[in-house]
């Protein structure tokens, strides 16, 4: 039987179509490759196959760590842009390193790392975005013990579309516009439904929460993270009021740092206030 094997840019098989001559349908091979093998490599001979750790070109510095640092970053692909609050980085002994962006993309970016330059790890990207043809390079800066990520940049193309990702490890910081439902009340008989809100926690420990649909209540204060996903808020100011104080809690999704709900209450100019919200 005869046919074609398409290996694309050489790292894995895109397609196999082989069949016996016309009129004889007993023999046929049809195969569509989706990705480089994640299992034990059957064949040890591909110098470009990152699944094989024992080949020329395999990383000299063998790393093994998983880190999910918080911080700030920028994610750009297909004309959309998102701010990164967290990335998950997983380096395997076989030379692969993967990057996940919880809450931003369901696709991993997978790369092959090469020799460390000091604490800087160059990577060559070969998979991501669910695209068939992914190429790119990146740099990951690590702590001195090479187990934590300090910063990273990843750039390249996925099926011809440019992607640019950068991230710097740091304290939690978020700026999210959320939709759902809640209630805002200042004084008695002044209750308003709230359908959208903006939540900002900055790296200096200050927060702003304001209604953006249904109520324009605008609350400022300080925040601390008491335990994973639970933020304690201390109110110091409400826009348009002279003296305000109170407390509250903000709940985050522990994996993605997306806002799930918040609740604030206290006193402002001698009146009580209350502001709660649950993300839909």
């Amino acid at each position: 039987m005869t046919g074609q094997i398409d290996v694309g840019n050489g790292t894995y098989v895109r397609r196999i179509n082989v069949a016996s001559a016309e009129g004889n349908f007993r023999w046929n091979i049809s195969f569509v490759g989706t990705r480089e093998s994640t299992g034990n490599p059957t064949n040890p001979t591909n110098p470009t196959n990152p699944t094989n750790p024992n080949l020329p070109g395999a990383p000299i510095d063998v790393l093994r760590f998983t880190d999910a640092p918080r911080g700030n970053g920028d994610w750009q692909y297909l004309g959309s842009r998102a701010s990164l609050n967290r990335v998950t980085v997983d380096a395997q002994r076989d030379g692969r390193i993967s990057f996940e962006f919880p809450g931003i993309s369901r696709f991993k970016i997978v790369a092959r790392y090469s020799r460390l330059r000091g604490d800087t790890l160059p990577v060559e990207i070969y998979e991501g975005f669910g695209a068939r043809d992914v190429r790119g390079t990146g740099v990951v800066s690590l702590t001195r013990d090479h187990t934590k990520v300090l910063r990273l940049t990843l750039n390249g193309t996925a099926d011809g579309q440019r992607f640019n990702i950068s991230f710097i490890q740091g304290r939690l910081a978020i700026n999210q516009n959320v939709q759902g439902s809640g209630t805002a009340e200042v004084g008695r008989n002044n209750r308003q439904r709230v359908y959208a809100a903006q939540v900002i926690l900055d790296q200096q420990g200050l927060f702003t929460i304001r209604g953006t649909d249904g109520s324009n209540l605008h609350v400022n204060g300080t925040w601390t993270e008491d335990r994973a996903g639970v933020i304690t808020l201390s109110v110091t100011d409400i826009r348009g009021r002279r003296v305000s104080y109170g407390r509250g809690t903000l709940n985050l999704d522990t994996r993605t740092d997306q806002v799930r709900s918040f609740s604030l209450s206290g006193t402002t100019d001698g009146e009580s206030f209350f502001f709660d919200f649950t993300v839909r």
């Binding site: 196999i16 195969f31 490759g33 490599p41």
Partner: peptide
């Protein structure tokens, strides 16, 4: 001197007189 060698996950079938084989991984050495 190898031209190409790789192991690829994917899906497909191999039809032969003994029946059909579903393929989940292909290793190609050229």
């Amino acid at each position: 001197f190898g031209q190409h060698a790789s192991t690829t996950d994917g899906s497909g079938t191999y039809q032969n007189p003994d029946g059909n084989v579903s393929i989940r991984r292909a290793t190609v050495i050229l």
